[in-house]
Design a binder for these strands. Sequence first.
DNA 1: AGGTAAACACACCGGTCGGTATACTATCAA
DNA 2: TTGATAGTATACCGACCGGTGTGTTTACCT
Lengths: 199, 199
Amino acid sequence: MHTVEQRPLTPAARRVLEVASELFYSRGVNVVGMELIAEEAGVTKKTIYDRFGSKQRLVVAYLRARDLRWRDFLTSRVEAHGPPIDRIVATFAALEEWMDRENERGCAMVNAYAELSDPRHPGRAVAQEQKHWLRDLYRTLVAPTGAGDPDALADTLLMLHEGAVVARNVTGITDAALTAKEAAQALLRAHGADGPDQR
Amino acid sequence: MHTVEQRPLTPAARRVLEVASELFYSRGVNVVGMELIAEEAGVTKKTIYDRFGSKQRLVVAYLRARDLRWRDFLTSRVEAHGPPIDRIVATFAALEEWMDRENERGCAMVNAYAELSDPRHPGRAVAQEQKHWLRDLYRTLVAPTGAGDPDALADTLLMLHEGAVVARNVTGITDAALTAKEAAQALLRAHGADGPDQR
DNA sequence: AGGTAAACACACCGGTCGGTATACTATCAA
DNA sequence: TTGATAGTATACCGACCGGTGTGTTTACCT
């Protein structure tokens, strides 16, 4: 039988997941074969299938792990600020830092969503969940600002966020996150958000 | 020898390109094999290779054709309006219409960019060119509005545009383009753009 | 009548895909 | 001591991948 659940990964399984994550992200989920992963992780295919069961599940594990890392990172950056408006701005500063560090190929969820066209593939749900989570995050951040039409504002911020990733990735606009951050501040002002930074 | 250049496509080649476009877009470039395309187009693989030379070139032909359709569509919608601000707003209305009609799987260029991880694949350049074209379009549309910081505003509009596609595709926000349009209007106002709609 | 282009049919190539089977070894806890 | 557990190595499977070769048929142009 294989693991798949949250039982702590064996050392070999951890290596597999690390290597697979790197390869899946940098080259794409469909392009990378199981044999390559096994080779790079110094492990036999048998071990991978013993631990993860199938490629589909390994892909899901990769997406879940990356999603978790991103959420933890973003959450910590948001919580480092008090005022609602500062928190919203912090999401774009966090995005900027994240993209500089480890987003060479754009958003892993968006890329996976593009690659996994079969609607039954469970990896699609992982990507959707992340975006729904981000949408909800913006809603909860917008609410206490007293901005008008808060739901539309939250969706707009979400779009700016996702658009910045795409623009940076394919158009090569390196300061996309910065531009998005300034646009977000302008929008908050336009929606009448009141915060300590307002005058 | 095979065609590849802009010589008018033979009837069989046209059928191949139509079928390939549908399959490439709806299922992904890497997932669809040449045999399936040949089958669905009622054509032998030999014919495809005689006309297009390789899968890589067929993919490029698909991207070029789709890009052209989109540019023609967007250009016509923009030119239907006179005032600069109306033209900018028209891009988001056009996006809304386009997404309702034929964007079930998001932006073909962004998806292809995600799938074609090999930087040497010429399909990547096609995607990049479209986004650069769109960026330039927004720049030329923003310039005559007299808005402050026009380049940043153009990039912001680009991000809203791309973000709306992603948000609608993976998050399922069906009115994403509408929300983006309203945000664009607010941003134009915030940048002090003057137009017939201003008061 | 002859030539050329565009299809057809079909067999075939080396290689890779995800996944399985068998057998053996090292570690460690009951 | 025994018996899982986790790992190794290797061979194998059918299916499919992108791509090619040989030869035939159809239709239009000169």
